[in-house]
């Protein structure tokens, strides 16, 4: 596994770094986050993801900048979409088209 100049394997490799004090407050999930969580479970069930390491692989493939910028379940959504495109289950064009449609639906209040 390649390491960067700090000896880290990637942006996800946080063990041993400095950091702020831990904020122990509880957080509730948004509905879309619950959906993404369940979607990855169903992808395991359907053997699209072999295991959690494959989900993480897609997260690590985002690169450091995107990794830092995205929220937790945004990373999961990105990794899931990447995997489904790689497996030929959906195409990027279909995803783009659908995203445009969902935006449109939102705008119309439909």
């Amino acid at each position: 596994m390649p390491h960067d100049t700090q000896g880290r394997i990637g942006p996800q490799d946080l063990g041993g770094l400095d950091g702020d004090s831990v904020d122990p407050s509880e957080h509730d999930l948004a509905q879309w986050e619950r959906m993404v969580d369940a979607m990855t479970r169903l992808m395991y069930r359907e053997k699209i993801f072999g295991d959690a390491a494959q989900l993480r692989e897609g997260i690590e493939a985002l690169g450091p900048d995107v990794y830092q910028r995205l929220s937790y379940f945004e990373r999961w959504a990105a990794s899931s979409a990447r995997k489904c495109v790689m497996e030929g289950l959906v195409t990027q064009e279909e995803l783009d088209e659908r995203i445009a449609q969902i935006r449109e639906r939102g705008r119309d209040g439909a």
Binding site: W32, M35, L42, A77, V90, I99
Partner: peptide, 16 residues
């Protein structure tokens, strides 16, 4: 405003 990756998750779910 709804983020791209949130929409991506929703789009993927609908397509699957």
């Amino acid at each position: 405003p709804t983020s791209y990756y949130e929409l991506l998750g929703m789009a993927l779910n609908e397509l699957l």
